[in-house]
Design a protein around this nucleic acid. Structure first.
Length: 398
RNA sequence: GUGGUUAUGGUGUAAUGGCAGCACGAGAGAUUGUGGUUCUCUUAGUACGGGUUCGAAUCCCGUUAGCCACC
């Protein structure tokens, strides 16, 4: 078994688990920082390890276009290429083909699209993408799927689900056919896992009965874990949680559950209490590069004027490198002057915060008080937002 | 001192006598299987004082300030 369920919280559906991969163990719930192009933007591997990140995410679509299969094969796989020894999950690129690439044509066999970089034409089948992820040496592979944006008609979802299911079957077959020898376990690896895992993806937009059907079909194929896809693609907050809760609770207990592309700290805590184990999201890094910091007392837009002479750390309760050494005023200055260090400092803090938030969740789940943990966190998180708005109101009135 | 010339948001610039516009800046917001990207919104101006005119950033007079040339 690749996934072991260790404990279930008694106050919610939250769970603790252990995911064994060819490159080491992953404690779930786990947040995976996103390193689309074989790098967590602006951060070094050393910094990621110090943050405590266990597994990272990369993207087959981007790496297929650049640097390409030839380079990655010669490099000896993605782990060697980017010098990251830990577990790596790779997204198939399904999402990118539908969000970035132009002129895409979906056929039964696969998808034809033009590169968003140079306009070159490509044709990808589910089999190609599985084989490429094996060249990468991915620990957890994702199959090609179709991710629809919200809102979308029921008819379109039904049609799309047929394609995604068909591609899931083909991915599964391609995985079974091709050998695993490209995975070389890390020297210290004691998980006994040799090959890559393949997860199945559940789509179905916000139609719960279609989700139900998709779950039955995908679970019937028996994947190593299951992903909830097509969530947080433009729908309102309450729908995100309704769909997540429904889908998570209908998935098998003994397999890892991965909520794709989510989310904010609040989204993650809600999803954990609904029984989700894995997350990836660009928010801590992308928003970090735009000056938004996540803290135990709320979100800060560090470019905002009130921080001009604020010589406190980003978060008093945080012990990351950024908070131990620098002030809000300094970081605001770096953003205002376009200095690269600003992007790095906030990205670093946000990743550290996300990892620590998840670690605190582990403790709370173990002690069966996760529901209260979430309630307390939310109270402080929203309270701070109010305080800041209140302060702003006061300064503008005076 | 004399002659010439110029003066438009914080900055740089538009506007045959007829709705003062643009860019940057500044202030805020958005971003969920990556956009260091982009988008949205807000802010703020005819140097000062007179005159001509239905109507003046625009024409006339004066003041102030800057720039150029000549004593």
């Amino acid at each position: 078994m690749n996934f072991k369920l260790l404990h279930k919280d008694k106050s919610s559906k939250a769970r603790l688990g252990l995911l064994n991969t060819a490159h080491g163990k992953v404690h779930t719930p786990c947040f995976m920082p996103v390193g689309t192009q074989a790098t967590i933007k602006t951060l070094s591997n050393d910094e990621m390890e110090k943050c405590g990140a266990e597994m990272i995410m990369a993207n087959a679509y981007h790496l297929y276009l650049r640097p390409g299969e030839k380079v990655l094969k010669k490099a000896g796989g993605l782990h060697k290429f980017m010098a990251w020894d830990g577990p790596i999950m790779t997204d198939s690129g399904g999402y990118q083909i539908f969000s970035l690439a132009v002129l895409r044509k979906i056929r039964k066999e696969g998808v034809e699209f033009k590169s968003h970089i140079d306009g070159s034409k490509h044709f990808m089948t589910p089999g190609h993408i599985i084989r490429f992820q094996k060249v990468l040496g991915s620990d957890i592979m994702m199959p090609l799927d179709e991710c629809l944006h919200y809102p979308v008609s029921r008819n379109n979802v039904e049609e799309s689900l047929k394609t995604t299911f068909d591609w899931a079957k083909k991915s599964k077959r391609a995985h079974a056919r091709s050998p695993h020898e490209r995975i070389k376990p890390a020297p210290c690896n004691d998980t006994g896992v040799r090959g890559p895992m393949l997860f199945g993806i559940v789509q179905g937009s916000t139609y719960l009965d279609l989700r139900k059907r998709a779950i039955e079909e995908i679970v019937g194929l028996d994947f190593d874990g299951y992903a909830i896809g097509g969530v947080a693609v433009g729908e309102p907050q309450d729908l995100i949680h309704e769909v997540t809760e429904y889908t998570a609770s209908a998935l098998p207990q003994n397999k890892a559950r991965y909520l794709m592309g989510v989310g904010t700290p609040l989204d993650m805590l809600d999803a954990i209490s609904e029984g989700v184990d894995l997350f990836d999201c660009v928010v801590p890094t992308r928003n970090g590069r735009n000056g938004q910091a996540f803290t135990w007392s709320g979100e800060l837009q560090l470019r905002n004027a009130p921080f001009k002479e604020d010589f406190a750390p980003v978060d008093k309760k945080c012990s990351c490198y950024t908070c131990r050494n620098h002030t809000r005023a300094y970081i605001r200055h770096l953003f205002n002057t376009g200095e690269i260090l600003g992007l790095r400092l906030v990205s670093l803090h946000n990743i550290y915060f996300y990892v620590k938030l998840i670690e605190s969740s582990h403790k709370a789940i173990k002690e069966n008080r996760f529901k209260k943990f979430v309630k307390d966190f939310k109270a402080k998180y929203n309270c701070s937002r109010f305080d800041l708005a209140h302060e702003r109101g006061r300064t503008s009135n005076s």
